[in-house]
Design a protein around this nucleic acid. Structure first.
Length: 367
DNA sequence: TTGCATCACGTTGCCACATCCTGTG
DNA sequence: ACCACAGGATGTGGCAACGTGATGC
């Protein structure tokens, strides 16, 4: 329900489908035999009812649209997608097109329960648990993602019956920390607002700021309400671990260079990526998530995580067109900017003054 | 199987300077 | 509260250097 409200901000078509049985929770699987979309709880209940029911073949619901059965698993995104979303997402850019996708086999048996492990139906990597086999490479990827996202292994290892691995780890941590800056606005009002939009579109700014948009505001507010305490803890931990908020994350340029300003700042502050195998650094109690999070909270978090995933941009973002224009016209030596010669400066000045005299305005780059 | 060389590809740092941003009076 | 100014911070593109993984011997 909350997921619906949140995802519904952009348009009704994106709302997650609700469970056909309880009509309360968002569906997570689609049962072909029953032609029904079911939430994790109802799925467990219905398909554990008898031997025949356990043999019903189900498929996960697409993590992107959450309205259609997933057909493909993207290993790069660790997401199960329906054919439409797969085509949509992976045609966005060349990098996305290179993502390896594999068909998702149907699920059978009982998904939930102690024997299944971490909250089968509700995890981002649920396809791994469903298949019951993890290749070493997948484990490594998982570990990498987990460390990246400040996973709390203590909690997960001790909490086999709760929502477990990714709900307490990948998804939650990722979203919490990304969201951190929205809270710092309250906590550090005298500091620069990394996540808030500029007062207005001034000068040559060409990239709109996503966080300022009304569409997201309500979601952020809702999410913000139940996360305040939690995020402050995380930020404190980050400060303690790093000693500084100015350290930057070493990421590929494809990631860093392409995200909007706010996101870059968020990452530089809160996503201190530990090297592989340094879980213990982040397993202090301060970084641990509250052990009691409602299903709704988790769904909201997952929703935000998915939304962020969907809206990731891999193209380079030009924030200041004028700077780009100047950079392109600037003289270079072996690719580096070089000082303008006196002649060039004079020519520029003449050209500029002529234009100014004729038009009354300076040069405005056009793109 | 191991070690080395080579190749291809991706990432990072550097440069100058207009513009932005913040603090101060 | 508003304005002007100073000075530090930021962002921009192309190239070379460097790092990393794959491949062949």
């Amino acid at each position: 329900m909350l997921k619906q409200e949140i995802s519904g901000g952009g348009g009704g078509d994106n709302w997650a489908r609700v469970c056909d049985t309880c009509r309360a929770a968002a569906c997570t699987v689609y049962c072909r035999a029953d032609s029904a979309y079911l939430c994790a709880g109802c799925d467990a209940r219905v398909h554990a009812a008898n031997h025949l029911a356990t043999r019903h073949e189900r498929v996960w619901v697409c993590e992107a649209c959450e309205r259609a059965p997933a057909a493909l698993l993207c290993k790069a995104d660790a997401a199960s997608l329906c054919t439409a979303c797969d085509a949509d997402i992976h045609s966005a850019n060349p990098l996305a097109r290179r993502h390896q996708r594999v068909p998702i086999p149907p699920i059978s048996g009982c998904l939930q329960g102690p024997q299944v492990g971490p909250a089968a139906g509700e995890t981002e990597d649920r396809f791994m648990t469903q298949e019951g086999e993890e290749t070493p490479s997948e484990e490594e990827e998982e570990e990498e993602a987990a460390s990246w996202l400040l996973l709390n292994p203590v909690k997960n290892s001790n909490n086999q019956n709760n929502n477990g691995f990714l709900f307490g780890g990948e998804v939650d941590e990722y979203m919490d920390l990304v969201e951190y800056n929205s809270c710092t606005e309250n906590q550090y009002p005298d500091q620069q607002h990394y996540s808030v939009p500029p007062k207005s579109y001034r000068g040559d700014r060409v990239v709109p700021f996503q966080y300022g948009e009304g569409k997201d505001h309500q979601n952020r507010q809702q999410y913000h309400n139940f996360q305040l305490g939690l995020e402050y803890e995380s930020s404190e931990a980050a400060y303690r671990c790093n000693g500084s908020i100015s350290q930057s994350v070493s990421m590929s340029s494809m990631d860093v260079g392409v995200v909007p300003e706010s996101t870059v700042s968020e990452m530089s502050i809160s996503h201190q990526r530990p090297p592989k195998g340094t879980f213990e650094l982040f397993s202090s109690t301060a970084t641990q998530m509250p052990s009691q999070l409602s299903q709704m909270d988790r769904e909201a978090r997952v929703m935000r995580y998915r939304e962020k995933k969907k809206t990731r941009k891999f193209e380079k973002t030009i924030r200041y067109a004028s700077r780009k224009a100047y950079a392109e016209t600037r003289p270079r030596i072996k690719g580096r900017f070089a000082k303008r010669t006196n002649v060039e400066v004079e020519v520029d000045q003449m050209f500029s003054s002529t234009l100014t005299a004729e038009t009354g305005y300076g040069i405005v780059p056009s793109f």
